[in-house]
Amino acid sequence: MGGVDVGDGKGKRSTNADINMIPFIDLLMVTVAFLLITAVWVTNSRINANAQIPGPPDPTKEITPKTPEKVLNVNIEAEEFVLTWRQGSVVASEVKVPRPTQNQEKPSYPDLAKKFEEEWNTHGSHKNVDDQTVDQAVLHARDNMPFKEIVAVLDALYTPKREMKIDNDVAKVPVFNMTFSIR
């Protein structure tokens, strides 16, 4: 049945040797079956957050008093998102974005993502490619809010991207890093 034609020999004996391909095909089929069964089709990903806890002071470095940075505070209210830029305790600007009523299964806020980008363009302080830090966002979520809502807001927060130099390579990174307000 299975054979590979290796051409027509013109010499004394035929070079038309039959290689039995059946075990080979069997092996291939078994490998395909095994790999299909063990394949992972749904890959999990992660969405990053940072607790912004300062490490122990480095004794080799001198402590320089820093002026507090502008931080974006995101308040998730029942009907709107309140985006407030604060520098220390000074409120620099405040914007309200209506919170659309969603299908409850998979919430997503594309309008909020656009607003985040606009806000960062006006107020963001880390825009240079060489700048290794990103702007900070603090998320204020109500205690009874489902986790998926938080992730939806986080997803919107990480939608705007900027270029950053990492190890002589320019990579696209989200413009914000998020932390929870622990109150």
Partner: peptide, 25 residues
């Protein structure tokens, strides 16, 4: 609920893991 998420987040941060990631699909 968000309060549980925040508590776990805070616990991890206090235990010395400030970079907390959430697993998502």
């Amino acid at each position: 609920k968000a309060v549980v998420v925040k508590s776990v987040f805070q616990t991890a941060a206090y235990a010395g893991y400030p970079n907390v990631s959430f697993m998502v699909t």
